[in-house]
Simulated assay, not measured.
Amino acid sequence: MKSLPPLSPGEQALMDLIWQQQPLSVATLLEMVNAGRDEAISRNTLQTQLTRLEAKGWLKHDDSDRVRMYRAAVTERRGRGKILTELKQRLFGGSGISLVRCLVEEGGLNDAELKELKGLIDSHRKGGKP
């Protein structure tokens, strides 16, 4: 399994859309990306980003139909795991507990999320998988 290069913020936003609702055409993606934006991005700009994501191994396309459709080349879980690992390394020196401590202490988790986190920890201790 090859290593995935990091994503720019714009590429990350595209992957989020694609993971939510794939496969997607360029036209559909363009509509989704520009929804709620003050300044729309062009089709060419979007196509350039999609080409870069393909070159990086994050995305693939299918030309079997009349319209080119894009889908993720990696699962959301693997992709987000890669992003989280980079974030953890860059901001927390690789420490998972420092990352979680920051979320808990800085108020990044509400009561329901804290309860869910406790459940995940308990499940992990018992040998369960998320």
Results as ranks from 00 to 15, higher is better:
M1T: 12
K2S: 15
K2N: 14
K2G: 12
S3K: 07
L4I: 09
P5V: 09
P5Q: 10
P5L: 06
L7Q: 14
L7D: 14
L7G: 12
S8P: 11
S8W: 14
P9M: 07
P9F: 04
P9V: 12
E11N: 12
E11I: 08
E11V: 10
Q12W: 13
Q12D: 13
A13D: 12
A13L: 07
L14P: 06
L14H: 07
D16H: 09
L17K: 04
I18S: 08
W19H: 07
W19S: 05
Q20P: 03
Q20W: 11
Q21N: 13
Q21D: 10
Q22H: 05
S25Q: 04
S25N: 05
T28D: 13
L29W: 08
L30P: 06
V33K: 06
N34A: 00
G36Q: 07
D38C: 03
D38E: 11
A40C: 05
I41G: 09
I41S: 09
I41F: 02
S42H: 12
N44E: 13
T45K: 08
T45I: 05
L46T: 08
L46C: 11
Q47D: 14
T48S: 07
T48K: 02
Q49V: 04
Q49S: 14
L50N: 05
L50T: 01
R52Q: 15
E54F: 06
A55S: 09
K56P: 03
G57K: 06
L59S: 09
L59N: 10
L59F: 11
L59W: 07
K60F: 13
D62L: 00
D62W: 00
D63C: 01
D63Q: 03
S64V: 02
S64T: 04
D65K: 01
V67F: 02
R68L: 02
M69S: 04
M69L: 08
R71P: 01
A72P: 03
A73N: 10
A73G: 12
V74L: 02
E76F: 09
E76K: 04
R78F: 09
G79Y: 01
G81T: 01
K82M: 11
T85D: 14
L87F: 07
Q89I: 04
L91K: 08
L91T: 06
F92D: 00
G93D: 05
G94M: 04
G96S: 08
S98L: 06
S98C: 02
L99S: 06
V100A: 02
R101K: 06
R101G: 05
L103W: 13
V104K: 00
E105C: 03
G108P: 06
L109D: 04
N110F: 01
D111F: 02
D111L: 03
D111R: 04
D111C: 00
A112N: 10
E113I: 03
L114E: 07
L114M: 11
E116Y: 08
S123D: 15
S123K: 10
H124Y: 15
R125P: 11
R125T: 14
G127R: 11
P130L: 15
